[in-house]
Amino acid sequence: MSQGITSTSFQFPGQVDFYRGKVRDVYIFEKTIAVVATDRISAFDVVLPVPIPYKGQVLNQIAFHFLSATAAAVPNWVSLSPDPNVTLGKRCTPFKVEMVIRGYLAGHAWREYRDGKRVLCGVPLPDGLKENDPLPEPIITPTTKASEGHDEDISRDAILKNGIVSEKDYLQLEAYTRTLFRLGTEMAREKGLVLVDTKYEFGSYEGEILLIDEIHTPDSSRYFYMDGYAERQAVGEPQKQLSKEFVRQWLIENGFQGKPGQSVPEMSPEIVASISHRYIELFEHITGKTFVPADSSDMEGRIKAAILEHI
């Protein structure tokens, strides 16, 4: 198995800036960007110390699959993907919010609800719900977009009151978010999956609002298997998931939630391999395609050559 690629540090002709996110290295040019999906993995807003082989390829190719499939309904930033780990596209100015949308009470929303909250990001929730129950209708629960550290829940009213996004633009973000979630839900259903919740990010490019970043990947989304969902829910069994939640659960069980003073548990080769296999499983299940591992003999050279050819 590939050892994975932790980071890149290229310098290209015409490059004006560089940004390293939690899992992506972004090379910035005057009008375009080249995004390299590395094999870094984050949870609880902390980058874990060991890369996951093929994770970057999985994320990049799933995102490209869905960005291509939804482009007619919601315009996005992508121009082409010249390498399994690389996508090139328009350089947008990001909005400083992440648009989280939830169709089911799971993950962070469930933990808040379990602890007694009945209003999440300004959205009221009914009493009597169980973990992983469907919500009466999908709800949008935005977060701030932190440059580092934890993103924070925020309400629509607070976004508008603080001028983070104009009302006109925010209404468009909401409309695009609901459209994408509907399309993502339909595409997941065709593959026997339930799209539980996900997040979208947007930016502006020459006055137009575009979808940016990745969509419907295991890093940004949570999926349940449709088969057996109702039966498991009826008897209170955990749902079978296809998402990054299993990584979070493993960390929680080993005493880590990204809180001060906590240390990331040791990631054994067996744990790393199991995470890699789960990412590949999601790729094949959600896209219906067979995963073809990219040549890993010289990943940095391969990635650099692909970007140089198209910038």
Rank of each mutant, 00 (worst) to 15 (best):
H150N: 12
H150I: 09
I159Q: 00
I159C: 01
N162R: 14
G163M: 08
I164F: 07
S166F: 03
S166L: 09
E167L: 09
Q172A: 13
L173T: 02
Y176T: 03
T177N: 05
F181R: 00
T185M: 00
E186N: 12
V196M: 11
F202G: 02
S204M: 08
Y205R: 01
Y205D: 00
E206N: 12
E208W: 03
L211D: 00
L211W: 03
E214F: 09
P218Y: 00
D219G: 06
S220K: 01
F224G: 00
F224V: 03
F224P: 01
F224N: 01
D227F: 02
D227W: 05
E231R: 10
R232K: 14
Q233W: 12
P238A: 12
Q239H: 06
L242R: 00
L242K: 01
L242A: 14
L242M: 15
K244I: 02
E245C: 07
E245L: 08
V247L: 14
Q249D: 15
Q249G: 04
L251C: 09
L251H: 01
G255E: 05
G255R: 10
Q257G: 09
G258C: 08
K259R: 14
K259E: 10
K259L: 14
Q262S: 06
E266V: 15
M267P: 06
S268R: 13
P269L: 06
V272A: 04
V272S: 00
H277A: 15
